[in-house]
Amino acid sequence: MKPAWLWSLPVLAAAGWASFAPIQRASREHVFEIPKGTYARRMAGDKVEILPSKITLTLGLDDVLLLRNLDDVPQVFGPTIMMPGQSFRLPFDRVSENQFTCTAHASGQMTVLVEAEPVWPWQKLRWRLRQWLEK
């Protein structure tokens, strides 16, 4: 029978890797879609949240917000109106907290938090944990 502490080794190894390994992503775009029927559902009194009320982006890794309006009506997202079938690609290049109007939200508001690129081990671990939890 193995000693109990041996079971913690894989966890420590994974945490060590997650803290020190370089972060790599296939794309810098963080994609969200406003599904078809969103406006109709809202008009019917459905308060379902299509998009998260807060989106966290990270400079250098996923610092581009890509919104696709798949609904049948125009949707206002923050600075712009998106026609049906249109996409809006919004890059961020500084750490910031941005409040946007968003008609796809029941609250009408959306926050985009832009964080600095993780450099220190604990920052990388935290970033990976957040990505994992968002999956």
Binding site: P10, V11, A13, A14, W17, Q24, R25, A26, D62
Partner: peptide, 17 residues
């Protein structure tokens, strides 16, 4: 368990495009 944890944390293998 290590392999599973690494796989869970790992992102894609390419740099951001």
């Amino acid at each position: 368990l290590t392999v599973m944890l690494l796989a869970a944390f790992a992102g894609a293998a390419e740099p951001p495009k």
